[in-house]
Design a protein around this nucleic acid. Structure first.
Length: 557
DNA sequence: GATGGCCTAAACAATG
DNA sequence: ACATTGTTTAGGCCAT
């Protein structure tokens, strides 16, 4: 690996409006990696006042997004892979130096936690942040920047991190991080985020929430990023995609055309995929008993075809399927994941939480408010700093908060439970483009069963929620009729739709009870997580503040 | 090796 | 006539 020498730099300067990178000549100081500005979107955040600037690094499939509020406070930032997106959007060059660090939705806390101040480059109280000299350097040509850097942070705990917080960051932290409200803000940022190294599928989009199809994988000029690219397959099966689409619809029913549209909108991969996927969607609608055709209201003129809805009897199944989505529903040609015992795939996965779930509702929206539409992308965010474990995280332009919370909490939980270990790059390198529509594999998982429920965002309107823990018995045993293969009754010989028409009974009461149990479990776990996270944040802030005071004291002397 | 889940392709009919 | 939608069948790959 060719190092860059020295340390990489993150330079950020808070200005009156938004956050702007501002080094005049960063190379003169300690820059190692120069990012170029991709774009700046203002006023597009849900809460307004948001400024989201994106910075890309030429030669790397990476770009950085920095979200700040109107006061210039950094709410969140992250790096992501953008491949062709970068080329397409790159407009002006700035001497911005970032290091790595996929910080997901972490705001100042993560930002500060993952970088050390470069004293020589400090700009006021919020100066450049530099990687500790002892840290390894990233080689842009070596593939995933995040991957390359990740090991550097395996043991980068508070000791190293303590170097990094500037006073302004600390102040902002006080305001931004005393609650988890930062996640509200930061999730917006996730619109554009993915993770370079681990995001093997991620249909990364630009800030337009997926209105524009991502460039084809071939457009990526960096073959060294085998795991990256904006046009990777979503991690979800078609049934899950359809489910999300329908659930995302206010009326909970959609014509096929709109289902297409939804999928295209949220998973731009399909824009450039062979058209067969539409056939697959229709095939799924017809074959999967979870989907029910709704007789069209004559008064409604939706054109040809019917509306499709979720069969309430099978809705739970779909949720379970989403929950179970191992991110490799079908992954031909993907390498066998590392079986290294030191890597626990679970650490890379967040619990299947999303703000729209009843879980959140029952917890009074403790963690988040729910975005109106929560969708998911199969992209990954690597968390470092506070959540240094690089883990895949599905992202979507509209599921930001969900993603942020679940990712953050999941990261934290995972980190607490496991030592931080990083995947082998070869794992990723072996991945190849697969044009099966849904092929995706958790690059860090060793098996679907161990790479579970990293769900992703799911439409908030889902009225049931995923459980934090898997049942220890198969879904099809729980629900009996989930798969046609388990439909052992004579009905099996009937077409699925006809079978459905025969009113296969599923006791809703039982489902409700089961869901209640799940919600209770999930609620407990979530609240615990929230407490852990807050506790961690508080400790970190206190520590940094203490160190700053000490530094001030030394300066005075 | 059997089984199940999922994907893909294709053919065909129905519909607007 | 055409495009779209819906159904069905078949075959393949992968994981269990």
């Amino acid at each position: 690996m060719q190092g860059l020498g020295g340390s990489a730099v993150l330079s950020l300067t808070s200005e009156s409006r938004g956050l702007r990178t501002s080094l005049e000549n960063p190379e003169a100081e300690c820059s190692q990696v120069t990012f170029t500005k991709l774009r700046s979107d203002k006023g597009v955040r849900e809460r307004g006042n948001g400024v989201n600037e994106c910075w890309g690094l030429p030669g790397l499939s990476l770009w950085a997004s920095v979200l700040s509020n109107s006061n210039g406070k950094v709410l969140a930032w992250n790096l992501q892979d953008c491949d062709g997106e970068r080329d397409r959007l790159l407009d002006e060059k700035h001497a911005v130096d970032l290091i790595e660090s996929p910080l997901q939705a972490g705001g100042l806390d993560d930002l500060a936690s993952s970088f050390s101040l470069c004293e020589s480059c400090q700009l006021g109280r919020m100066g450049p942040v530099v990687m500790p000299p002892g840290k390894k350097v990233v080689d842009p040509s070596s593939g995933s920047l995040a991957r390359a850097l990740t090991p550097l942070y395996q043991d980068t705990e508070a000791d190293d991190l303590s170097l990094s917080l500037s006073a302004s960051l600390s102040r902002a932290q006080d305001e931004e991080l005393t609650s988890l409200s930062w996640l509200h803000e930061s999730t917006d940022l996730l619109t554009r985020m993915g993770h370079s190294g681990l995001r093997s599928v991620s249909p990364v989009q630009d800030g337009s929430a997926g209105n524009e199809p991502s460039p084809s994988p071939s457009s990526s000029p960096e073959p060294s990023f085998p795991c990256t690219g904006p046009s990777r397959k979503p991690p979800y099966s078609f049934s899950c995609l359809i489910f999300m689409a329908i659930e995302d619809a206010p009326s909970k029913r959609l014509p096929v055309k709109d289902i297409y549209g939804w999928i295209l909108e949220h998973f731009p991969y399909f824009a450039s995929a062979p058209t067969g996927w539409k056939n697959s969607v229709r095939h799924n609608l017809s074959l999967n008993k979870c989907f029910k055709k709704v007789d069209k209201d004559r008064s409604q003129s939706i054109g040809k075809g019917s509306l499709w809805s979720i069969d309430p009897d099978y809705r739970h199944n779909l949720i379970q399927a989403l929950k179970k989505t191992p991110y490799q529903p079908y992954s031909p040609r993907l390498p066998k994941p590392s079986t290294s015992p030191s890597v626990s795939p679970q650490q890379y996965h967040s619990p299947p939480l999303w703000p729209g779930s009843a879980l959140f509702g029952k917890n009074g929206g403790v963690l988040l408010q729910v975005p109106q539409r929560v969708i998911q992308h199969g992209s990954h965010v690597a968390a470092q700093g506070l959540f240094p474990v690089i883990r895949p995280l599905p992202l979507s332009p509209v599921s930001k908060r969900t993603t942020a919370v679940r990712s953050a909490l999941g990261d934290f939980l995972s980190r607490a439970k496991h030592s931080v270990l990083i995947e082998s790059p070869s794992n990723c390198d072996e991945q190849q483009e697969d044009h099966t529509y849904s092929s995706w594999q958790c690059p860090l998982s060793s098996s679907p069963s161990t790479c579970p429920t990293q769900d992703s965002s799911i439409p908030r309107t889902l009225s049931t929620e995923l459980k934090l823990e898997q049942k220890d018995f198969p879904l099809d045993r729980r629900l009996g009729m989930w798969t046609k293969g388990h439909l052992q009754t004579p009905r099996d010989t009937l077409p699925l739709k006809k079978r459905r028409a025969e009113n296969i009974l599923v006791k809703e009461e039982e489902d409700e009870e089961e869901e209640d149990e799940e919600m209770k479990e999930a609620a407990g776990s979530l609240l615990h997580l929230a407490g852990v996270v807050r506790s961690s944040l508080s400790k970190k802030i206190i520590k940094v503040q203490k160190e700053l005071k000490e530094e001030d004291g030394e300066l005075e002397q």
